[in-house]
Amino acid sequence: MRRSSIFFLLTALKILIIIALFVHSRIELSNRMTLWKDLEGIVSTLKLTDMALFTDARYARHPTQADLFSAFQDYPGSIEHFPTGTIVPPPEFDSVETVIKIK
């Protein structure tokens, strides 16, 4: 077989795998629709605001409830929570249009 044919075949094979993964993604996502609805239910019942991904620091457990403007708010650069501190940046409320000011 020609070398170019082998190359095209291998490339086509990889593209097929990618298509298969895409189909997997679609099926998996549609299977999870009810899970998300249920999770949303739990979140609204318990009035949760954050994911339980990092439980080693306050600002990391509830990044949305942390803030930048309090003095001495735990800052992600603090070494004692490495590596979580490098993963969770300070909340970026500045960049959000919804800064709440008193007129």
């Binding site: 605001t49 990044p63 949305t64 969770v88 909340p91 970026e92 959000v96």
Partner: peptide, 19 residues
């Protein structure tokens, strides 16, 4: 704290500028 901000915080945590 608005729900909008909560969601955007997670955008930032997992955005390209996050650690």
């Amino acid at each position: 704290i608005l729900r909008d901000e909560i969601i955007r915080t997670y955008d930032a945590v997992f955005g390209w500028r996050s650690g």
